[in-house]
């Protein structure tokens, strides 16, 4: 179902800061929980995308029909596990992650992805559609297959 080639789709790209406190293990468990929930919900709602966690920041790409996207975005906004959300892009677009209900990039809760971080700080310095595009392409290269994502180091 995630392909959605015929229906018009939109894409939202945002980044936010992690508001989780606690040990690496605890944070990893939370992120695992977020991903599991996201995959189940997004599959149900026809949403695809990718999530990056790196050095205390999230970057997320959400794609799908605009109404479903807006509802999911609103739910995510209310989540106290992150804060300082900056929306980098909201535009009509084809799916960039048609096969993933929520792909994950980022190896451990404390680890970092230098390429993603560079793109992220560039995007935060200049939150624009162009920097959102840049982040998106970094994310594409980082994303691992949904089946073999591994949070444990």
């Amino acid at each position: 179902m995630a392909g959605g080639t015929h229906a018009r789709t939109h894409r939202i790209v945002y980044c936010s800061r992690n508001a989780l406190r606690g040990s690496h293990d605890a944070i990893e468990a939370e992120i695992r929980q977020i991903l599991e929930k996201s995959r189940a919900n997004n599959h149900r709602d026809g949403i695809t995308g990718a999530l990056l966690f790196s050095s205390g920041s999230f970057v997320q790409v959400l794609e799908g029909p605009i109404a479903a996207l807006e509802r999911t975005f609103e739910t995510i906004q209310r989540d106290p596990r992150h804060r300082d959300v900056t929306v980098l892009q909201i535009a009509e677009s084809n799916r960039g992650f048609p096969a993933w209900s929520m792909a994950f990039a980022g190896n451990t809760a404390g680890g970092s992805c230098p390429a993603a971080e560079a793109a992220m700080s560039a995007a935060l310095a200049d939150p624009s559609a162009a920097s959102g595009e840049q982040l998106l392409s970094v994310l594409r290269t980082l994303v691992v297959r949904e089946d073999d994502w591994a949070l444990a180091s």
């Binding site: 945002y14 975005f73 906004q77 804060r83």
Partner: peptide, 14 residues
Amino acid sequence: LDLLGRPYILHGNL
């Protein structure tokens, strides 16, 4: 205040 101050996406508008 924190919650209301977070972005909204409504009718395609940020």
